[in-house]
Design a protein around this nucleic acid. Structure first.
Length: 481
RNA sequence: GCCUCCAUUGUCUAGAGGCCUAGGACGCCGCCCUCUCAAGGCGGAAACAUGGGUUCGAAUCCCAUUGGGGGUGCCA
């Protein structure tokens, strides 16, 4: 069987991580079976359109490697792939349903409905449209239509019995029909609702597997009624558990970390994002954790999708990102980290290559790089207490002795490179009879002004250069004297 | 309120009646290595929501309770 899936976002803003995951799974399923992954833009809500949002969708999907086989920009046999461009196509289908008695014209205004809805809520009841307009005589309907009275077309849902369906993730779901509202199919502005356009387009585009968030779980029976009214084959349903921020909240824009672009801006790698996202709500059935997109295609199986909502764990994402950064070819890492170095360092003054070598194993997310290397250009003010370290047998007194030992050595060095610095200092330490750590600890502290540094005393001395290294050591000697 | 879905360590999860004194990963803690922090090596704490059933036997099946999610729009 040919598998056709689609990602059908609304262009209402940035790409939400939950959306990226939905797109990912839809892509994986299609590719797993050699089928097609289709991109369809659902812009039926005129009021919510955001300029540029469609481009963001294209851009994000491309960056993630989720290349679509058919879509608005590249076309395909079922176009157009933007619903607003298909507008005139939906009405005839709705009219067909009116003819067959599965739908009807409704002239009730939004205002009076809102009022009745509010009243029902006040009474603690669930509002349900009372099918008032279903009982209008044919003559009355024709008259109002002829008079151009604004109308919508509603589905005529059954009121008794129950409708059930099978979901590949959640199993059998059934809903009492009396909870089904007569949903609007065609809006007063002539646009179809999501509910209607989705069914029509999925059918027309030959979608075999409908993948979407589980918020659609309870409205799916209504879609099935539509398929049945048309006599169309119902697609396979794959509803996905929600991606959560914590146990009670969805990942949301307010947290500032719901959008794909938020993470990219912070310095997360797309590959790490995709790898991690795949694992929120799905597992390969074994202990593997690292997957390229192609490997995901191989491993993907609907059976591995979970039912419970999953919390998006930034800590684990950090770890994935860290692992991916470590595995980056050095040149790639260097080019990616350079702009972050540039934020706090003067490229002319520092050996970026050497610094990058030291930093690659210490970078979890790129946005944290500036704070880790800033000390190279700005010697931080620090407490002399940092010189004291029991384990390294370093005291304020020994630190002073050590720095006085090191200072002339560095000053006299003819070749300012790591190895000569290392050899000269180690020789001096050996001659002095002091413990390595007792000298190197204060040297590193004096050079960096901080406890944790990317690299040891020799590396930092090298990066800083002779002049700056001596300046910092002399200043420290003065402070300690 | 009504409808509906879900429920294993802090988090992602393995587990489809005996293989479970519940496995892996992140995080956390300790030790080793070490001029720091990491990395690396070794070890540790940490879970089957509760109560009833069914069964020789339940994390696994059923029911209830509790908790949480979703729906209840001329939004998607």
């Amino acid at each position: 069987m040919n598998v056709r899936t689609r990602f059908a976002p609304s262009p209402t803003g940035f790409m939400h991580m939950g959306g990226v995951r939905t797109a990912l799974y839809a892509y994986l399923l299609a590719k797993k079976y050699g089928g097609q992954f289709i991109l369809r833009i659902e812009d039926t809500d005129q009021g919510r359109l955001v300029e540029g949002a469609t481009e963001v969708i294209y851009q994000t999907l491309k960056e993630c490697g989720l290349n679509w086989d058919e879509g608005p920009d590249i076309g395909g046999p079922c176009g157009p792939y933007i619903q607003s461009e298909r507008k005139q196509l939906y009405l005839p289908y709705a009219q067909q349903l009116v003819k067959s008695g599965h739908a009807y014209y409704c002239f009730c205004t939004k205002e009076e409905l809102d009022e009745r809805r509010a009243a029902a809520e006040a009474r603690g009841e669930t509002f349900k449209y009372d099918k008032h307009c279903l009982h209008l005589s044919q003559e009355e309907v024709d008259r109002r239509l002829a008079d151009h009275v604004p109308y919508v077309i509603r589905m005529n849902a059954p009121t008794e019995g129950e409708t059930s369906y099978h979901d590949l993730v959640f199993g059998d779901i059934s809903m009492p029909n009396d909870t089904l509202d007569d949903m609007v199919l065609i809006k007063a502005d002539g646009m179809p609702t999501y509910n209607f356009a989705n069914v029509i387009d999925d059918h027309l585009m030959g979608i075999t597997h409908v993948m979407r968030g589980m918020e659609y779980l309870s409205s799916t029976p209504k879609y099935n009624l539509l398929y049945q009214a048309f006599g169309w084959e119902i697609p396979q349903y794959i509803h996905l558990p929600t991606v959560m921020r914590d146990a009670q909240h969805k990942l949301s824009k307010r947290d500032g970390d719901a959008y794909y672009s938020d993470f990219i801006d912070k310095g997360y790698l797309t590959e790490a994002l995709i790898n991690y996202l795949a694992l929120v709500g799905w597992n390969p059935g074994d202990d593997r954790e690292f997957f390229t997109l192609d490997e995901l295609v191989d491993a993907f199986d609907v059976k591995g999708i979970n039912r419970a909502p999953g919390i998006f764990d930034v800590e684990k994402l950090r770890w994935f990102n860290f692992e991916y950064i470590r595995k980056l070819p050095f040149e790639t890492y260097l080019s990616k980290v350079t702009p972050w170095f540039d934020q706090v360092l003067d490229p002319a003054r520092f050996d970026y290559r050497r610094l990058a070598e030291l930093m690659q194993d210490r970078t979890e997310i790129f946005s944290e790089v500036p704070d880790k290397v800033r000390f190279l250009s700005q010697w931080p003010a620090f407490d002399s207490a940092l010189f004291v370290n029991k384990k390294q047998k370093s005291t304020l007194e020994s630190a002073l002795v050590s720095l006085r030992l090191v200072e002339p050595i560095l000053e006299g060095l003819s070749d300012w490179a790591e190895q000569p610095i290392h050899d000269a200092v180690m020789n001096a330490i050996a001659e002095s009879g002091m413990k390595n750590a007792t000298v190197l600890w204060p040297m590193r502290i004096a050079l960096s002004g901080q406890l944790a540094t990317p690299g040891g005393a020799f590396e930092i001395a090298y990066l800083l250069g002779r002049e700056e290294s001596l300046r910092r050591i002399r200043a420290s000697i003065e402070t300690l004297s």
